[in-house]
Nucleic acid binder design. Structure first.
Lengths: 155, 155
DNA sequence: TAATATAGTTAAGTTACTTATCCATTTAGG
DNA sequence: CCTAAATGGATAAGTAACTTAACTATATTA
């Protein structure tokens, strides 16, 4: 049981930091990661996660905290652009596994690289100790919010 | 100059943690903080920030990383609901300072309290040392992303 | 004192969500 | 077994909230 003062300070810090931090990152992803490909931020995340094993409509909806129809529509757009493939499961014929096509993977690589470059520019001003603190904190947050670090079954 | 491995690990951790963490918090704010008042998440943030001194359309747009018209529209909705007040500046007649009305403040108090309760439930499972790490990391993130911890002039 | 910049709003259009409904398939209970 | 409920996904219709472009009013600057 932590001290009340510390608890309040932490709540406040999370509240004041996460929203604007995420909004800045989101803007940057929009500007760079999806640049020139005409895909939305959610579509970018779907592409990214489908490669990591979060690769069904339901799992993506759960992970991204949006409705299944929203995922379904975003997926449809990606498929039509030739960036994502639908692979029906053979064990369960209701299921459709998703995975990026070659073009989708290329887009991902480029987008991620641009984003990482942007991040690296900022983070490289920090000390090793700061980075370690950051890593620890992220791990704590993942546990706190039930964020899976790795994921599911393959087609 | 930090070590390359650590830098990459930190980038990855941020990338994997912040988006889903924020999405969970966002869902929770939507569900609780704005509950029954028919206001959007952005409107809630506008209400909150306008009290903290981020209290003009332009400043809010900058802070929330959305366009000024978007803020303007959200503000209009809040004003019509009687939750926010427009106070024209006397020094600069282009400027309009914003601040929550009594009703707006009440809504804020309740919403923030519900959100803090939700957060406290999660955070109280942690050790003091974890909370301290979290605090430090948030402070680092604020510096990294130019997030002002306190704010501007008053009407 | 004219040109430019800033603050805010209005208008029009678009995007991407939501809920409700539906179909197909699988799992579970009697 | 065999029907009822649960699950995975898609479709349809409606809406909320954003965007850019253009406009008004005021302030700053050259």
């Amino acid at each position: 049981m932590p001290s009340q003062a510390l608890l309040n300070a932490a709540i406040n810090a999370l509240w004041e930091t996460l929203p604007p931090a995420w909004m800045r990152i989101r803007t940057q992803i929009r500007d760079n990661a999806t640049q020139g490909h005409g895909i939305s931020l959610v579509q970018f995340h779907i592409l990214r996660h489908s490669r990591r094993g979060i690769n069904t409509t339901a799992a993506l909806a759960e992970h991204l905290q949006i409705s299944r129809p929203a995922v379904s529509q975003a997926v449809e757009g990606l498929v039509q652009k030739g960036l994502l493939q639908r692979l029906p499961s053979k064990q369960d014929r209701r299921k459709i596994y998703l995975q990026p096509s070659a073009a989708g993977n290329t887009l991902l690589e480029e987008g991620i690289q641009r984003s990482q470059f942007w991040m690296a520019e900022k983070l490289q001003t920090l000390q090793d100790s700061d980075l370690q603190t950051l890593l620890q904190a992220m791990s704590t947050l993942q546990a706190l919010f039930d964020i899976p670090s790795h994921a599911g079954p393959k087609p």
